[in-house]
Simulated scan of single mutants.
Amino acid sequence: MDGIKALTFDTGGTILDWHGGISRKLAEVAGRRGLKADWAAATNEYRRRSLGAIVNQLGPRFNFDDVHRDQLDRVVADFGLGALTKEDRDEIWRAWFALDAWPDFVPGLDRLRVKYPCVSFTLLTPRLVIDVSRRNGITWDCIISCEMLGVYKVRPEAYQGTAKLLQLKPAEILMVACHNFDLDAARKEGFKTCFVKRPLEWGPAGPPDPTPNPACDLVVDGFEELAARMSC
Rank of each mutant, 00 (worst) to 15 (best):
P214A: 10
F191C: 02
F9D: 06
A41D: 04
P214I: 04
H68K: 14
R24S: 14
L99Y: 14
A205V: 03
C146S: 12
E157R: 01
E225A: 11
A101H: 07
V114F: 04
M175H: 14
L124I: 00
T162F: 13
R135A: 08
R187P: 02
N56W: 02
D184P: 03
R198L: 08
A186M: 08
T162C: 15
K153G: 11
K25E: 15
K115W: 05
V132A: 07
D141H: 14
A83R: 09
V76M: 02
L58R: 00
D17H: 04
P60K: 13
L84P: 02
L109G: 03
F9H: 05
K188P: 05
R74C: 01
S145G: 08
K153I: 13
I130C: 07
R74W: 08
R198N: 07
P214D: 14
V220W: 04
K164W: 04
L168V: 04
R229E: 09
V55T: 13
K197Q: 14
C232P: 01
R69N: 08
V76F: 07
R187Y: 09
S23C: 03
V154L: 12
R61E: 00
N63F: 04
D73W: 12
R48L: 13
L81F: 02
D2M: 00
E172Q: 15
P107I: 09
D2H: 12
E91K: 11
T139C: 09
N44C: 01
L218A: 03
E189S: 13
V154M: 06
D17Y: 07
F9Y: 13
H19Q: 14
T211D: 14
G206M: 05
L112Y: 03
P208N: 06
R111M: 15
L200I: 07
F181I: 07
D2F: 00
F181Y: 10
Q160Y: 09
G21T: 11
T162G: 13
N180S: 05
V29L: 01
A228I: 11
R74P: 04
G80Q: 00
P156W: 13
L200A: 12
R61D: 01
H19D: 11
G203P: 07
T193C: 04
L226K: 00
L200M: 13
K36S: 11
A40C: 04
L35M: 02
K115H: 06
E172M: 08
V132R: 14
Y116A: 07
P103Q: 12
F223D: 11
S231R: 09
V55L: 08
R229D: 02
I4S: 09
L99M: 11
D100H: 08
P117R: 08
T193Q: 00
K169C: 09
Y46I: 05
F62V: 12
V29S: 04
D100W: 10
Q57G: 05
V219H: 05
D141V: 11
K36C: 02
A40T: 03
F223E: 12
P204K: 01
C178I: 01
L124F: 15
F105N: 06
Q71C: 00
V154I: 09
T125M: 12
N136S: 07
E224R: 07
R24H: 12
A98T: 07
L174P: 03
